[in-house]
């Protein structure tokens, strides 16, 4: 019989049984970051390619969700910091080896730009919500009147932004990809967590984030063409995601013992049902089927697949963060 136990030290509640230090804040932050990345990606991409009119909602309307998501995400992140009084130290240095550092800087640039972008289309957004939702409309009108109307600096910023919108779009496009990848790389940089220790996590999180962005756009889109277009994009993304997931597991199983153990959590272990059922099943395959049915002419309310995709994305991040913290080298 083999026995391993802590004689002393580690068997105290604050240290062990498992150093489980990240809770709901981090997966939520990763989800919202990925969502924002997706929204910004499509807005800027279609703007640059000159398809603003074709993809009206994607370029003009849905980007308003991005800064909201980012700000909520950042608040969650701030809540997760344990030495909060010193958070400003993030911006006293850039450490390229630390994904968290360049993530912080990326967000530092993306956040203001993502606020400016919807301000450029404020009138369209007000029109979009007018008659649908009074509170939002009222709020947006207030923003238009008080903040933009009375604040010269913001007026000036909007003027400049309009002038250089193409450059801004390029910057945002690039940063949105970085942001999307970052949400995955953040995890895969941690050597000690075998589950996270795979480079496929970056592209996987990017695709998953983009697909949640797509879900929001197709949910918000009003005309049939835009809805169907994004539905098709989403189908493609689901296919890519499944492809990555299969590769991820192939990678684990062909790797060291600790990574095989990590994979086992999903292949018979405690996360099997929730991963394959809730994420892959309900969050990927089911919405894909619904979208396919819609393409073949069945009447399906677009909100259903969109919601499922969003839910799947959120569940996926919760699973990855939780399970990752269970996997370890020692003890």
């Amino acid at each position: 019989m083999k026995e391993e136990l802590f004689v002393s030290g580690r068997n105290i509640p604050n240290i062990d049984p498992v150093l489980h230090i990240w809770h709901w804040q981090i997966p939520l932050y990763l989800f919202l970051g990925g969502l924002a990345a997706g929204l910004i990606f499509f807005a800027t991409y279609f703007f640059i390619t000159g398809k603003t009119d074709k993809y009206n909602v994607a370029v003009k309307i849905s980007p308003i969700i991005a800064p909201i998501a980012i700000i909520i995400g950042l608040l969650a992140l701030l809540l997760d910091l344990k030495h909060t009084q010193f958070f400003w130290q993030l911006y006293t240095t850039i450490r390229f080896e630390s994904p968290m550092s360049w993530g912080a800087w990326t967000l530092g640039i993306v956040t203001p730009l993502s606020i400016i972008w919807p301000l450029l289309y404020l009138d369209d957004i007000i029109d979009y919500f007018d008659g649908k939702c009074k509170i939002i409309t009222k709020f947006l009108k207030w923003v238009d009147k008080i903040i933009i109307g009375k604040c010269h600096i913001i007026k000036w910023i909007i003027k400049i932004a309009r002038k250089y919108q193409k450059i801004m779009a390029w910057i945002l496009l690039l940063l949105s990809i970085i942001l999307g990848v970052y949400t995955g790389i953040l995890l895969s940089a941690f050597n000690a967590r075998p589950l996270w220790n795979t480079s496929i996590l970056g592209p996987l999180f990017l695709v998953s984030g983009v697909s949640t962005g797509v879900a929001v756009i197709m949910w918000m889109a009003r005309d049939h063409f835009e809805k169907i277009s994004f539905s098709k994009i989403d189908l493609m993304l689901v296919a890519i995601e499944l492809f990555f997931i299969i590769h991820m597991f192939m990678g684990y199983l062909a790797s060291s013992e600790v990574q095989q153990e990590a994979a086992a959590l999903f292949l018979g272990g405690e996360f099997t049902a929730v991963f394959w059922g809730f994420f892959v099943g309900i969050g990927l395959v089911l919405p894909a089927l619904l979208e396919l049915m819609e393409l073949f002419g069945y009447k399906i309310p677009i909100a259903v697949p969109a919601f499922l995709i969003l839910l799947g994305g959120l569940v996926f991040r919760f699973i990855m963060v939780e399970a990752g913290q269970l996997t370890r080298y020692l003890y």
Binding site: Q85, I94, R95, F96
Partner: peptide
């Protein structure tokens, strides 16, 4: 070299723990 002149500032407000 990778870090941008780290630490940029050694100074920390005195009211912090």
């Amino acid at each position: 070299g990778l870090a941008l002149a780290n630490p940029v500032l050694d100074w920390v407000p005195s009211f912090l723990p």
